[in-house]
């Protein structure tokens, strides 16, 4: 385009170097864990600082232990159940609410909109919500993890914004053909809104994949059979109870590979996300853009 001066060339070089360094900072913590998870366990416990290449002979012993452990496998399955169930529930309710709020000439629309929006700025708080979940008989069941928090006002607003951009003529044409709202939603709005639906599905799914808190308070009796992966991860890594969780595997292996358990468990929970995020990140960017138009 334009000729670059020496100053600009120097700037470009430093800028590139700076951005490359920054990229390394984003990656290195995960890389460290990945390399740690396949290192020689004795060397891992003795090491300090960053692990850039596997220490000693690479081993999959840590993964073998983690993947043979039924607590970890169960919580993996649980997380999948929770993600699918709460995403489906959230998405269905989200689509209904967004569709209603995107329609014009609705007498009670402002009341509905208010009831939705108000949940964004005020809530009952931790204990009153806990009491409601308790009174619904959901404590110590999967429902307590799936249902509360499955629907968020912010996502409704995002979807409503996107629905409102569908040309009104499409609705008019359908109405002339005698289609009711349910048919219009199913046959017209949903098929042309695949992009925003993908965005919302990902928002709900990733939120649930990474969630641990509701499970930690609603599973009052700490029934491990219902734990999601993140909660098991927390017990192993942060509360250092790898003994009680993993020890039932054969004892000797646990002793040898104990330093690797933390790293391997982290990797097992992070790998699926690392594999898919480059492909889905564009949907998140879309979501942010829609949100910025009408926050």
């Amino acid at each position: 385009m334009f000729r670059r001066t020496t100053g600009q060339k120097v700037f470009a070089v430093f800028n590139t170097i700076g951005l490359v360094c920054l990229s390394f900072i984003f990656i290195l913590p995960v890389w460290h864990v990945a390399m740690g998870s396949i290192s020689d366990p004795l060397k891992v416990s003795a090491s300090s600082g960053l692990i850039l290449t596997p220490l000693g002979d690479a081993t999959l012993g840590g993964y073998k232990l983690v993947l043979n452990n039924h607590n970890i496998l169960t919580s993996y399955m649980n997380t999948i159940i929770y993600v699918v169930a709460s995403t489906v529930l959230g998405l269905v309710l989200n689509i209904l609410a967004a569709y209603v709020l995107s329609r014009k000439n609705l007498y009670f629309k402002s009341i509905i909109a208010f009831l939705v929006l108000f949940t964004m700025i005020f809530n009952g708080g931790l204990i009153p919500t806990f009491m409601v979940v308790r009174n619904l008989g959901m404590l110590d069941t999967r429902w307590a993890i799936i249902v509360p928090g499955a629907l968020t006002a912010y996502n409704i607003i995002l979807m409503r914004t996107s629905f409102s951009e569908i040309p009104e003529e499409l609705y008019e044409a359908a109405r002339i053909d005698g289609a009711g709202n349910f048919r219009i939603l199913w046959q017209i709005v949903i098929p042309v809104s695949k992009a925003i639906i993908a965005v919302i599905v990902l928002f709900y799914a990733i939120q649930q994949w990474n969630a641990w808190f509701s499970a930690s308070i609603y599973l009052v009796h700490q029934n491990r059979a219902l734990y999601p992966l993140q909660l098991t991860l927390r017990e192993i890594v942060l509360l250092s109870s790898e003994n009680s969780i993993v020890a039932e595997a054969d004892g000797q292996d646990v002793e040898i590979y104990r330093p690797l358990i933390k790293y391997a468990t982290i990797m097992v929970s992070v790998i699926p996300m690392m594999v898919i995020y480059p492909f889905i990140q564009k949907y998140f960017v879309t979501g942010v853009m829609i949100g910025s138009v009408k926050g």
């Binding site: 269905v92 309710l93 989200n94 209904l96 609410a97 569709y99 209603v100 329609r103 609705l106 009670f108 509905i112 009831l115 939705v116 949940t119 005020f122 809530n123 009952g124 708080g125 204990i127 009153p128 919500t129 009491m131 409601v132 619904l136 249902v147 509360p148 928090g149 499955a150 629907l151 006002a153 409704i156 009711g180 709202n181 349910f182 939603l185």
Partner: peptide, 23 residues
Amino acid sequence: SLYVMALFPLAYFIIFNYVPMGG
């Protein structure tokens, strides 16, 4: 039909957001 649709998400918010506010 729009009000029928709104019923479900509103019931959800009432149970999990507005009843706790009463609490």
